[in-house]
Design a protein around this nucleic acid. Structure first.
Lengths: 138, 138
DNA sequence: GTAATTCCTCTAGTCACTAGAGCTTCAAGA
DNA sequence: TCTTGAAGCTCTAGTGACTAGAGGAATTAC
């Protein structure tokens, strides 16, 4: 039996976050001690580790809920789980592409400034005048 | 004189967002028409464009507030503006690195699944068992 | 003159937590 | 056994950067 603090240390999920997940229905409400404190089993530890892992990978809470539902039905075809993962991969790739565009422009902006005062600061000018942008971001 | 809708169309910032920026003090409260509708000058259009541009580049509202303050004092040294931009560049690079790690793992997870049911679905198994991860993400 | 569009304020919701107040329980040492 | 300090409890409210909707007023186009 683990206390909520044990669970937190073992999974790296903060204590208030565990309680929040319980409220959201992502983890079930566990047993309680005589003094009303949460007591978790190994199964619940594993589920929380699953959630942590999926959150680390950027899955939304709703996706995780779907994946948990799926994992409770091991006889079903797994196309759905696959689809969720594929979509997540796509969205990560989009974010990377977007951030790379930003990186390029920020590089240009942040390394060009050789002015001495704000009046001729390239950062400020570049932000004021979109025409200075090499290409459209977003 | 522009209505809030004109401003929105010209800058690409949504109408409620413009009002939100006003509430946050990022743009000044503009003049009003006889019927109490907002009327903006070209100067305010430009400031909003500046904000839009900075947001596109991922600057936080607080950063933008600092940049606006700076741009109001053109005689000051621009080290601060430069610093904000440099920090933003660093944080974008960190995000890219992080997302690339996620991409790699998701790729592995999402392309390996040749199981037919959830019971042997690689997606679910990989999420359940962190040991299947090639390397630590986060 | 009227109808459609745009505008107004206000409250509340989004996501995934995080912080804090005020209280109770638990575990370890004396 | 007592005490003390850490950890737990519930509850409300705050974060960032918007977004949605209600209910009404002003503006614009025909």
């Amino acid at each position: 039996m683990f206390s909520i603090g044990d669970l937190s240390r073992r999974t790296g999920v903060k204590v208030p976050t565990i309680r929040y997940y319980e409220q959201m229905g992502l983890v079930a409400a566990p047993e309680r001690s005589e003094g009303n404190q949460r007591r978790y089993s190994r199964q619940e530890l594993e589920r929380l580790a699953f959630i942590r892992h999926a959150r680390d990978l950027g899955f939304a809470v709703e996706d995780i809920r779907a994946l948990i539902d799926l994992s409770g039905h091991p006889e079903q075809p797994c196309g759905h789980a696959d689809k969720i993962a594929q979509e997540q991969l796509l969205s990560v790739r989009e974010k990377i592409a977007q951030l790379k565009r930003l990186e390029a422009e920020l590089e240009r902006i942040a390394t060009c400034c050789d002015g001495r005062t704000v009046g001729d600061c390239y950062v400020i000018r570049a932000l004021s005048d979109h025409a200075l942008c090499a290409d459209e971001h977003v």
